[in-house]
Amino acid sequence: MLRNFKVLTPSSLNEVLYVISHIDQPYRFLCGGTDVLVRMKDNPAYAKVLVDISKIRELAKIEEHKSTYVIGSGAKHDAVLAYAPFVEKYNGLVEAVAAIGSPQIRSIGTLGGNIGNASPAGDSIAPLMAFDAEVELRSHESNRIVKLEDFFIGPGKSVMKSNEIITKIILPKFDGLRSGWKRLGQRRAVTISKVSAALAINCVKHPNGSIRVADVKIALGAVAPTVIRARKTEKFLLETPNLNAAAVKQACEIACRESRPITDIRSNTEYRSEMCGVLLGDLIDRLVFGR
């Protein structure tokens, strides 16, 4: 049972910013609570103060801008899944978010919480990172935009300062990218990923039948201390004159080597590393070759 903590209930973003710049004890945000409350039940020392941001309307919106979509950090997973432009153009994100937890978890859990939690297994992170998403960090004094790729520094750790909050996730608009996400877990539903991969890719078919990769973005989850971009693999693919079976195979091998997984209660190093390649291969098969 939860015990020994106190709650602050600021009623606007301004109040939140004020509170977190003045608070003199360690605190955590409470948004959907699906992560923070679970940890506190496990370990009552996890947080002594919660700042309840679940009711801050300004944080829950999803909006379309000229060249971006802006997702409030308090947007629930269900809201992301119901947002038509994502369903149309950001398949990778939708697939990942649809796989987070259970219907119960998705109806209260948020994207900001998934990012704020900074778990290498956070499922929304890989597709967001693959889409070059950025987060807006705000404090009473300042406002900065950080690339999601630069946001995480380790399991549970990020560059966010104690007086900052994630307000938005900024998702650039793209033309021509097809995307997908895939994972392996301990079972088929309600499972934490052992490995996950997100791919966004745009290929051009030459009249001679060869396939060139015009743009590609790959992110891998649960195989390093943070979710990572597979930059070397991307570079290899971009430079490949023809994306044939051999090239795909080589790309998958590079992806395996880019991962730095650990052995834990869910899986082991060798398997995780090898599966990065398998998942990437599957995604390429699906998105490029329609298999």
């Binding site: 079972r187 088929r188 539903a189 309600v190 499972t191 934490i192 209660i265 869910r266």
Partner: peptide, 22 residues
Amino acid sequence: VSEKGHIKTLGLSTYVIPTTRD
């Protein structure tokens, strides 16, 4: 999973049982 005499899978998301999908 146990390690040195301690059970590590002390929750339903680490000790997993079949869901409707399994």
